[in-house]
Design a protein around this nucleic acid. Structure first.
Lengths: 102, 102
DNA sequence: CCATAAGGTTTGTATCGCAAACCTGTTTGC
DNA sequence: GCAAACAGGTTTGCGATACAAACCTTATGG
């Protein structure tokens, strides 16, 4: 009944592997959540790219996106899902294996 | 007079970053050289993919390719260039930094 | 009001990675 | 001795993707 598994060991997850998204992961990993503007500055991506990468991550189930309004201005809160955190950890382990780091 | 530099620290080199080429690098790094067939088996890539990735690496100046004949059958020897080895090391350092490994 | 800004999303395009088709020469079956 | 299979690669076709630029909506300044 586990619809998603981590079947191939040392298999690189291309969704995470993309440099722009790697930055997003490393920004989100240590925190509970972050807003769009924070990520924008932290990652150095353009608004357009950040938006589309986030959509991709959301589609993959790696992040959760919550849109609220603070007064009248929109605010987008992004957080890593449980699955996202797990997959990121797996990704890092795979990279360490493959590159024979540490 | 240094036409190529390593200007951006922590900048991911996309030529190396591609998983298929990462495999090629890790195969070639510990040895002096390897032939096409060896890499074919070691990396699990198809002939077509291996060929085109090697071309890309050659174009980037990361590998050197020497075609010889052993008797009548062709033999292609591939080796990392000095630049390739250096760039791979830089790449690994960048990854370690970015992922905060080690 | 008109222009500019804030906070994003959608669209256009050039590149890329992969699979399949192709190429050149060699060995094998008959 | 010639067609078929094989070895060792290269080239081509195509679907997916990342980035830039255009666009949208609501606020705010002059």
């Amino acid at each position: 009944m586990n619809e998603s598994k981590s079947p191939e060991p040392n298999k690189i997850d291309r969704i995470i592997h993309e440099p722009a998204r790697l930055k997003i992961f490393t920004c989100l990993d240590p925190v509970d959540n972050a807003d769009f503007i924070f990520l924008l500055h932290e990652t150095g991506l353009s608004k357009g790219n950040l938006s589309s990468h986030l959509s991709k991550l959301e589609l993959a189930g790696y992040v959760e996106i919550e849109k609220t309004f603070i007064g009248k201005i929109p605010r987008t809160l992004i957080s890593l899902s449980k699955k996202g955190r797990k997959s990121f950890q797996d990704y890092k382990n795979a990279i360490v294996q493959i590159l024979e780091l540490k």
